[in-house]
């Protein structure tokens, strides 16, 4: 075998491996969309078809027309999902930025304790504290009269908390990277703390906030178990994942509508993901952990 032939073979092998990885990664997503587009008879056919032979939107229509839970619709679930997702991203970003400034710019007695707390809290599985969280919110509701269980506010506050540690750690790196001289120069010019923060620091860390919010966005959009526990008593408050699980519980094996609903849940996050993927990677590996 000549070296040239070997190089050829090697590069063909690499391409083949790359193609195999691509198919492995993409196929389930493709199968979801393909199933969603097949009529019931084709889904039930003894020989599966790789490509829908008679594509139809009937399953999507059924999901979107919202006969699933009387008095609600896909659009109300979508609205709920958007409220908790965008709401938690916005609030968490602002809170995290404030905390990041504190951690990156000041030394104060509880600073180390605060950072250690963030580190440890990131490690505690949400699934473990869901029971006490539920009882805690129940107690809070009883003693303050706040609407929490069966209300979007409970889920919103949990999502804020869950994304805070990672967002703070991430933004802290950005804040630390802003040259202090800039702020000091502004301060000499007579700017107050607020002005310095708003005019100098904020524009410089804004790109970092966008990157940090990606994580919060995806966490909140995809989250299921917390939403399921806190919202299940009130169908008007369901987020998309909860409604999807409900759909599944109702129909069991009606794969057409289930896949159509799954596709609808997936599209926004996928578009978002592809849009921001580079930042996502650096966010998780650099920001989250290295600070």
């Amino acid at each position: 075998m000549t070296p040239r032939l070997m190089r050829r073979l090697r590069s063909v092998g690499l391409y083949a491996a790359g193609a195999a990885v691509f198919v492995f990664a993409v196929f389930p997503v493709y199968w979801m969309v393909a199933t969603a587009l097949k009529p019931q008879s084709e889904i039930f056919a003894p020989t599966p078809t790789l490509v829908p032979q008679a594509p139809t939107l009937e399953h999507f229509e059924r999901v979107l027309s919202g006969v699933l839970i009387p008095g609600t619709s896909f659009w109300s679930f979508l609205t709920n999902s958007l409220i908790v997702t965008l709401g938690s991203v916005a609030v968490a970003s602002v809170f995290a930025l404030l905390a990041a400034v504190a951690v990156a710019r000041f030394r104060f007695r509880l600073r180390t304790a605060f950072v250690v707390l963030l580190l440890i809290i990131q490690m505690v599985p949400m699934e473990a504290i869901i029971i006490s969280l539920f009882l805690n919110f129940r107690q809070l509701e009883l003693s303050t009269g706040l609407e929490l269980i069966g209300n979007l506010s409970s889920v919103l506050i949990v999502y804020i908390a869950v994304s805070l540690p990672i967002t703070i750690m991430f933004l802290r790196g950005f804040v630390a990277a802003v040259p202090r001289e800039l702020e000091e120069a502004a301060a000499i010019d007579g700017a107050g703390h607020w002005t310095v923060f708003w005019r100098v620091l904020f524009p410089l860390v804004a790109p970092g906030m966008v990157a940090a919010s990606i994580f919060a966005f995806i966490t909140a959009w995809n989250e299921f178990i917390v939403a399921f526990v806190f919202l299940q008593t009130n169908s008007e408050s369901y987020t998309l994942p909860v409604s999807l699980s409900y759909y599944f519980g109702r129909t069991g094996t009606e794969w057409g509508p289930i896949m159509a609903a799954s596709t609808l849940l997936t599209i926004p996050v996928m578009a978002f993901f592809l849009f921001v993927q580079r930042r996502m990677v650096s966010g998780l590996t650099m920001g989250a952990v290295k600070g």
Partner: peptide, 16 residues
Amino acid sequence: GLMLAWATPVLTASFV
């Protein structure tokens, strides 16, 4: 392609 697998919501992936 990897991004697609990664971005799929857990619930959706489980159904598929």
